[in-house]
Amino acid sequence: MGMVMLLLLALLAFMIIGSLIAAESEDLLSAVVCVGAVGSGLAIIDLLLGAPDLAITQVVVEVLCVAILIRVVLTRRDETHETHKDTFAIATVLLVLGVLLVLGGWAMTTLHPFGQPLLASDAPGVAAQYLAGGVAEVGAVNYVMSVLLDYRAYDTLGEATVIFVSVIGSYAILRRTGRSHRAARSQEGES
């Protein structure tokens, strides 16, 4: 078992413990901080697994997430955050999730083992072609960026559309006065 594997398992355990505390914490603020810790753990795992671009993005996104959530939680105190009282419903949920865990775990063991990706197998797929011809075809030495901005540029366009829509949606939900209210008020002012 290599150093990377040990560190990875330790960080994964950290993430799982952090998310369990976030799930069961009585205080919303500490739950938010725990989710922030989980995201930071993910950023370190990104660095460990050779994805510096992802680590940078994850840290920036994490800071923004935690800032947004703390802003919401700090000013709005709320005392109700325990689980549903209905024990039968909770037992059913736990049973279903347990079955999901067992079936999913069985499915995971049938995947190609960790550390030997499809890229290294007999049928390497599209990634090997990108790695072989990336510099010559695109001219970028960063393969993540050449996939993101050239080979899969339409995906990135779709992503930009999704972000644009979510920003517009947040603005529409959060603005103080709706368009119809503003029109009505300006009419009142004229009369």
């Binding site: 671009d53 992802l54 997430c65 990108y130 999704v162 979510s166």
Partner: peptide, 30 residues
């Protein structure tokens, strides 16, 4: 080298996650 394709797609997904979170939070505020 590690596989660049999952990294590129996850990079997209992380940012979309932030957008969704902002939308959910604004609904919760309302």
């Amino acid at each position: 080298s590690v596989d660049p394709v999952p990294q590129a797609l996850v990079l997209t997904s992380i940012v979309i996650g932030l957008g969704c979170l902002a939308l959910m939070v604004s609904l919760a505020i309302r």
